[in-house]
Structure formats: structure tokens, C-alpha cells
């Protein structure tokens, strides 16, 4: 066994997994805050990636990503205020159908605004600006790691962990967990529940933007396009494996699925072509059958 290859595969898997983790953590955050399953999460990635692309036409790419984040936050808040809040308290199926409708609407909007073709990420029209973020690719002892993988590990993973820590220890995290249990009880204690929920949607959009921008190739390899919508589907198996209502669970599951995908690509793909894309969804089936709470899902408190 080539240990350098195994380590390289593991690091690449973790790098991709970090992107899954960051997107899924934002997705779960919204579910925790509002009990809404955001079927438009892939479109959040898409919009985030296109916002990054648009910014990159005017600014260096690293700065473009940073500038896209507040816009993405605003986008998330607007979606919550204009679309989700009026639906809260309605029938669950109605809300699900509405978020599926939102996904189609956002898809169409992206198509109108940015066109159907895949864009090249980076300031292609402005010769003076760097087209990519600084190249951090390195090779050490036979282990090669691409710039995209290093950037993913450097940005997405800390961001996901920051969200986990913030949710557990920060004042906003405590308020969000309180609101997620009972908005009415929170309001009775003077907690501004609507604002807490809107911020959760904003954060989710920011996380999706980071994941979307890097999956779309902000650090090399391709650019934003509608293929992101298919990539975004990975959020669902990650969230289910993590426990669906657990942000730490989503992070662990994201990394795990990234690793499994990478090793499947290395060892199984040649034997069973296409298996790598199917594996996350096979995992979902097994999880739902044998461990419905997922890895770290919240167990109901029952006093006896």
C-alpha cells in the first residue's frame, strides 16, 4: 500500500468534506432555528458562487470572496423576511413545497442574470487583477495537495468549527438554541426571535457561499455554473448522517463523507463506475434504517 497516496487521498477527502461540512452546517442551522428544510440550499450555493464571480470581475478574487459574504448574508436575510417568515406555522408540506418553489425561482433568476454557461472564476477581464487566490499547492514526501484543497482546509474547516463553537458558547448561539425550542417562550422573555432567525438564514447563506465559491473553483478548477445545483444535493446525506438537527453532527458527517468519497474514488471507482456518487445516498438509507438520530442528532428529553 502506498502510504503517501493514502494520506494524499485522506487530505483531499477532508478538504472536500470541509466544504460539505460548511454548507451542511448552515443548512442545519436554519433547520434548527425554524424547522424549515431548505430545499433551496443548492441554489444558495449557486447564488453565492455567482455573487463571488461578479465581485471577482472588479476585485482580486480573495477580496471578491470576502465582499460576496455580506451580500450573501443580506440575501439570506431577505429570503427569510420575504419568503420564509410568512410561511412559518403553516402546514409542513406547504413549507416544503414552497422551498422547492424557491429553489426553482432562484435557479431561473440565476439563469436570467448570469446565463446558462459556466463562468471562469477570477477577474478575467481585468488584466491587472489576480485571477485566482494565491496558489498554496504543495508537495511533501510524495503527498501532493492542490491549492483548492489547502484553501478549503484553511477556510471552510475553521468556519464550520467557528459555527459549532459559536452555537455552543456565544450569546447569539444560546439565543438561537432557545428560539429553536420555542419562539413563543423566547418572545415572552423579550428575546427578539425574528431577528435571531433572520441572522440564522444570513449565516446559512454565507456558509453556502463559501462552500459554493470553492466548489465552483475559486481556488482553481472550473467556475460557477448550474452543475453546482447537483453538487449541492450532497448536503442532504451529510445532514441526515449528522443527525439533521446537529451542527457538530453536520461537520463530522461532512468530513466523513468527503473521506469516504475520496477513498471510494481511489479504490472502488475502477471496479464499480459511478459508485462514488451513489455512496453518500446509500449511507443515508443505512442511517435511516439503523440510526435515525444520525451521528449526533438530538435525542428527545423524556422525564420518567
Amino acid at each position: 500500500m502506498d502510504f503517501a497516496l493514502v494520506i494524499q487521498t485522506a487530505l483531499n477527502g477532508l478538504a472536500n468534506g470541509a466544504l460539505y461540512a460548511v454548507i451542511a452546517a448552515g443548512f442545519v442551522l436554519v433547520y434548527r432555528a425554524t424547522s424549515v428544510v431548505n430545499f433551496a440550499i443548492a441554489e444558495f450555493m449557486l447564488i453565492g458562487a455567482y455573487l463571488t464571480y461578479t465581485m471577482s470581475l472588479f476585485f482580486p478574487l480573495l477580496l471578491a470572496i470576502l465582499l460576496a459574504l455580506p451580500l450573501a448574508f443580506l440575501f439570506g436575510v431577505l429570503v427569510e423576511r420575504g419568503f420564509v417568515r410568512p410561511l412559518l406555522g403553516r402546514n409542513v408540506v406547504a413549507v416544503i413545497m414552497a422551498t422547492i418553489g424557491l429553489a426553482s425561482t432562484l435557479d431561473g433568476t440565476a439563469l436570467i442574470l448570469w446565463g446558462p454557461d459556466q463562468k471562469a472564476m477570477g477577474a478575467a477581464d481585468v488584466a491587472q487583477l489576480p485571477k485566482e487566490v494565491p496558489n498554496l499547492a504543495f508537495s511533501l514526501g510524495g503527498v501532493f495537495l492542490s491549492s483548492k484543497a489547502v484553501w478549503s482546509l484553511l477556510l471552510a474547516l475553521p468556519l464550520a468549527l467557528l459555527l459549532v463553537g459559536g452555537l455552543k458558547y456565544s450569546r447569539y448561539g444560546v439565543l438561537l438554541r432557545a428560539v429553536s425550542e420555542s419562539e413563543t417562550a423566547a418572545l415572552a422573555m423579550g428575546i427578539n426571535a425574528p431577528r435571531v432567525v433572520a441572522i440564522a438564514w444570513g449565516i446559512s447563506a454565507v456558509m453556502a457561499t463559501v462552500g459554493g465559491a470553492f466548489l465552483a473553483g475559486a481556488a482553481g478548477g472550473g467556475g460557477p455554473g448550474h452543475h453546482l445545483v447537483l453538487l449541492g444535493l450532497i448536503v442532504f446525506p451529510v445532514a441526515i448522517l449528522g443527525g439533521f438537527d446537529s451542527v457538530p453532527g453536520a461537520v463530522v458527517a461532512g468530513l466523513l463523507i468527503g473521506l469516504i468519497e475520496a477513498f471510494s474514488q481511489l479504490y472502488l471507482e475502477s471496479l464499480l463506475p459511478g459508485i462514488t456518487q451513489a455512496i453518500p445516498f446509500l449511507i443515508v438509507l443505512l442511517v435511516l434504517l439503523f440510526r435515525p438520530y444520525g451521528l449526533l442528532g438530538q435525542h428527545r428529553i423524556e422525564r420518567v
Binding site: R177, A178, A185, A186, M189, I301
Partner: peptide
């Protein structure tokens, strides 16, 4: 209507 999944300290903090 306490927050059942929050600890006592977290309930007070909220």
C-alpha cells in the same frame, strides 16, 4: 416553558 435542551445556566443566559 423553559428551554428544555438548554442547561440551567444557558436558560438564565438566554
Amino acid at each position: 416553558p423553559i428551554f428544555r435542551y438548554l442547561t440551567v445556566l444557558e436558560n438564565l443566559r438566554a
